[in-house]
Nucleic acid binder design. Structure first.
Length: 591
DNA sequence: GTGAAGGGCCAC
DNA sequence: AAACGTGGCCCTTCAC
């Protein structure tokens, strides 16, 4: 397919090109860069297209005159990109908007992300691919050649083939959007896509902002873990070698303590009746009787700490900023939750020794806010359960309040055990917990656990009914949705009970987890708009928590702004129970 | 050597 | 498949 494009490399042509495009409602938007990381490479091309008329802007000549961000010749481009009048259609727009933000110094207005749209339409079907070529093939039936994608974008002169490739990627976007939008409309995903599209720029900015990690503190903690690992490892080797015959002849045989197979063999050699897995929850009961098992558990804990949360995380510190810029996937899970990697800032251990390493730099403060019991509030709202709602409205200790209801006593008379049972059930219910799991986690017998579950659901009959309906709909509707309308289709084997059971638990959980994700995404957009032109910067998110960094002097104002944004977002999805946000200001990412 | 799979464990 | 949902990271093992 021949396409019409124009390569632009001077200010006057750029002005003319932007004038030509500025009245178009939809613009395909793409960039070509010399690296995947905006802190490491250069922005070479910016492409904009209305579908017929495509402009490929070569930034190299502009770059040769100095900082792109202050070059007045680029003002028309910045204005066009920042405008909210034209929809900018990009595939994985987080990438393009990050480069524009960092290298051109402007925020892209009105983003439409065909990658996120394709993910929404696929509704959790993990077999579908969502690269641009895949999406173009699926929705337009065209084959897109991506071979130039990894070509040399730093070359002094770009080849015709490179520029044509760049033009084609932008030119096809309006058509992709049109086709995708038909599916978005028929699948009733318009609200969910709006939520996602509006969240792209806040996330792009968060990744550029990064979070500050105190290297000294981290190393200090790591050293402690390494020392403990060496000590426990040594002790464990001694204990395990007691069961090995050749120990006295050849000295202590080295066992690989990280190998389940070798450790299990050695423990069996000591006469320990090993369970089918060596996971902590299975070994825990054996730890009291067998010191080697207790030592293994100690070793595992510090080994995990020094590997997963060790030296490697320091390698993610970007030299130019001194901060960690992790990758956030906006639709990381089919429920709509984010996932995070390189490194995963959503799995940093909760202990203060780790969290205190993530700090506000000098003169700054962290403002940390999280939703209180958001998933349970969503369940209360969706099920409209009178008693469950009452437990929230009462405003008292939530788990004590539910314990009082379940056991039919006054809140003041709730025993610690009763509160603990209620708390575990409150958490378990959104995952579809069963009696046997509840029994094993509480130490209750199967019968006692069944009885407690029965009491719990008898206390909350409408919640029970809502969860049962959700499970039944797996077979009838074969799909479910979150509050924003995010869609999840079920994949299960009709004849396999465990497959059906697993789909039913997912059906109970997805609307709740998904709505929680919806609320967080809405809050991120509201926050983004409210902190524009302030010192506040989004630096991390963890499912129901938002961390913002700001000038110390602005901390109180930022806390109020953040809480307000989160509460407004919550109220858009939950109305029958109050939404509660706990917010505080600190020098470290701690409670 | 490299990569996939499986076990294990961290977060919410 | 912990009959409690969603992720990512590290390690070993095993196939290519």
């Amino acid at each position: 397919m021949e396409i019409y494009f124009q390569l632009i490399s001077d200010g006057a042509s750029l002005q003319k090109a932007c004038d030509e495009l500025k009245n178009e409602p939809y613009l395909g938007f793409d960039v070509e860069t010399t690296d995947l990381d905006p802190y490491k490479g250069d922005l070479r091309l910016v492409q904009l297209s209305d579908g017929q008329n495509t402009k490929v802007i070569d930034l190299k000549p502009f770059k040769d005159k100095g900082d792109l961000r202050t070059n007045p010749d680029l003002a028309p481009l910045r204005e066009l990109l920042a405008s909210t009048k034209q929809v900018k259609i990009a595939h994985n727009a987080k990438f393009d908007t990050k480069w524009v933000r960092h290298h051109l110094g402007c925020e892209v207005g009105n983003v439409y992300d065909t990658y996120l749209a394709s993910l929404l339409v696929s509704a959790g079907d993990g077999d579908r691919r969502h690269g641009l070529a895949d999406v173009v093939q699926f929705f337009l039936g065209q084959t897109l050649d991506k071979s130039e994608q990894v070509s040399d974008w730093a070359a002094a002169e770009l080849s015709h083939s490179q520029v044509e490739y760049a033009a084609r990627d932008a030119a096809i976007m309006p058509e992709v959007r049109a086709k995708l939008d038909e599916r978005i409309a028929t699948d009733e995903l318009t609200r969910a896509l709006k939520l996602e599209n509006e969240c792209v720029v806040p996330i792009a900015e968060m990744e550029l902002n990064g979070i500050y990690l105190d290297t000294g503190r981290w190393r200090e903690q790591l050293d402690k873990m390494k020392t403990a690992q060496a000590k426990f490892g040594d002790e464990l080797q001694d204990m395990l070698s007691a069961g090995v015959a050749q120990a006295s002849l050849f000295g202590r045989p080295e066992i690989n303590l990280d190998s389940q197979a070798q450790v299990t063999d050695a423990l069996v050699g000591l006469g320990i009746p090993m369970p089918d897995t060596t996971r902590a929850w299975q070994l825990q009961p054996l730890a009291e009787k067998y010191p080697a098992v207790a030592k293994l558990l100690e070793y595992r804990t510090v080994a995990k700490a020094s590997s997963s949360f060790g030296e490697n995380i320091l390698e993610f510190i970007e030299p130019t900023t001194g901060r960690i810029h992790a990758d956030f996937r906006q639709i990381g899970a089919p429920t709509g939750r984010f996932s995070c990697s390189n490194p995963n800032l959503q799995q940093i251990p909760h202990e203060a020794e780790y969290r205190r390493c993530f700090m506000a730099p000098a003169g700054k403060k962290l403002v940390i806010a999280d939703y209180s019991q958001i998933e349970l509030r969503i369940l209360a709202d969706f099920s409209d359960d009178k008693n469950f709602i009452e437990a929230f409205v009462s405003g008292q200790d939530f788990h004590a309040a539910t314990a009082a209801q379940v056991f039919g006593i006054e809140a003041a008379d709730v025993t610690p055990d009763q509160r603990s049972f209620a708390k575990r059930l409150n958490f378990g219910v959104v995952y579809g917990i069963g009696a046997s799991r509840f029994a094993s986690m509480t130490g209750l017998t199967q019968t006692q656990a069944e009885d407690t579950l029965r009491r719990y659901f008898a206390t909350y009959p409408q919640m029970d009914a809502w969860l049962r309906t959700a499970a039944n709909n797996v077979k009838i509707e074969r799909s479910t949705r979150s509050g924003s309308g995010r869609l999840a289709r079920f994949n299960f084997d009709e004849n396999d009970r465990s497959s059906l059971g697993s789909a039913q638990r997912y059906a109970k959980n997805m609307p709740i987890q998904g709505t929680s994700a919806d609320i967080l995404k809405r809050a991120l957009r509201l926050l983004h708009d409210d902190i524009r032109d302030t010192s506040a910067k989004l630096v991390n998110i963890v499912h129901d928590e938002i961390v913002v960094e700001c000038d110390a002097a602005d901390a109180d104002q930022t806390a109020a702004t953040l809480e307000s944004a989160m509460l407004r977002a919550g109220a858009e999805f939950v109305s029958k129970v109050p939404v509660k946000v706990d917010v505080h200001t600190a020098d470290e990412w701690t409670k």
